[in-house]
Design a binder for these strands. Structure first.
Lengths: 242, 242
DNA sequence: ACCTGAACACCGTTCAAGT
DNA sequence: ACCTGAACACCGTTCAAGT
């Protein structure tokens, strides 16, 4: 059933860690978290499990490497603030715009690779000194500094941004994955309609609020909603922290 | 190694869905997400896999039921706003306090049951009309209404709260789980110290910000930080949405 | 140094058979 | 109606053996 039509890989290029990671990302993207198995990987790479284990310690390390690769690509696209205080571009890019850009970069990376959300929060906690956590922290943090937040609040302000962005993007990705699991014939509008109707049918005594927002759930745009949330957090930061 | 000393269950009470769910929660709490297997469950309940499958459709449904049970218990402890507009307690409980209480209830539930974070975001997307999503939405939403947010912004404001709380609490739970995985002899302070040192040793050109907040990472209190984030979001909501 | 592929222990799930 | 337990297909990982 899930036997996708896939070139069995041209082979000839020798196996390498990069080729394995690349294949892992493709499997995760097309078949979801459960789609990455050593069986599928060996088939795709026309090799045996032992060959993969020679380049990679275990599945966890492979997932970590896949996460690194995708995040690096996503955050590399952001200008990420100049390293030196050169080029006075005037007000060209405000810190707010910078934060929105970083947030949107992560949002879109997670949207394109839904498995990333789970992996990211695991990675941030399992190896907080690995390449991913500092990269994300640095991307948001520089702009937080530029915002005029006093240094003693940097960690708090940046943490809130990271948590909101990962929480919202992760929920969005989970939604998309669930939708996809229902098959390609059901679209977003249909699902939202069904959920909105269910919310509208809740008990008026127990769920007055949830009933009242059913229509807003149906009409909302994920990306717009996400950015509205970023702006809300930004407002909170500038209002309370200097 | 992981052969925990466990009463093989007094048995005699017949098997039931509730007893299975209860055992599942205990397994998840003591052994983590990977600790819930039908093998461990049959041993704990002194029965065979077929018996469990008679009460529960599959592992996914079992995880969902475990999530329901824990969330219901956590949010039931919150007053959750009076059903009827009785008892004018004056300014006793402000909407802000109500939101903090709901947020803290979820934070602590996730802290006590780290597997909950992953399950919750899955549950919210897989069955948004199930018992969990409306319950969480309603708990936050009523207070958002009481805050004076105009109705057309209810969904946005409440979503941001939910996303921040689940994102932050989830990250916190992942941190705790990773710490526990290192063994009981390493404590929080030790881990934070190691990470802070690693951050402090980063390249000054590439990671000036992350280096600068290394000390704040070491000193921070998780719960305090979480509540500061809730207040930040709350400030954003009241400042921008009426 | 790099790869092969059989084998191991473990997993979720099914199902004929019992009571 | 409720439970038993062997069996199936699948998983991550290991390792002796090859080149």
């Amino acid at each position: 059933m899930a036997t996708s039509t896939r070139r069995p890989e041209r082979r000839e290029q020798p196996l390498s860690r990069e080729r394995i990671v690349e294949a892992a990302v493709e499997l995760l993207d097309t078949a979801g978290e459960g789609g990455l198995t050593f069986r599928a990987l060996t088939e795709r790479l026309a090799t045996g499990p032992g060959a993969i284990y020679w380049h990679v310690a275990n599945k966890g390390e492979l997932l970590g490497a896949a996460t690194d690769a995708v995040v690096a690509a996503a955050l590399a696209l952001e200008p990420a603030a100049p390293t030196a205080p050169t080029a006075p571009t005037g007000h060209a890019g405000s810190p707010q715009e910078g934060i929105r850009a970083v947030a949107l970069g992560l949002f879109e990376a997670i949207d394109a690779h839904p498995w990333l959300a789970t992996q990211l929060s695991g990675q941030l906690s399992r190896s907080p000194s690995g390449p991913v956590a500092p990269r994300i922290f640095e991307s948001f943090g520089r702009q937080v500094g530029a915002l005029g937040v006093p240094e003693r609040d940097w960690f708090t302000a940046t943490s809130v941004l990271v948590h909101y962005v990962l929480g919202a993007a992760g929920q969005n990705a989970a939604n998309a994955a669930s939708a996809r699991a229902l098959g390609p014939e059901v679209d977003r509008a249909e699902i939202l309609g069904t959920v909105a109707r269910a919310w509208g049918d809740l008990d008026p005594d127990d769920y007055p609020f949830t009933r009242a927002v059913a229509d807003q759930l149906r009409e909302h745009d994920d990306r717009e909603q996400f950015l509205a949330g970023v702006d809300l957090v930004l407002t909170g930061i500038t209002a309370r922290l200097r």
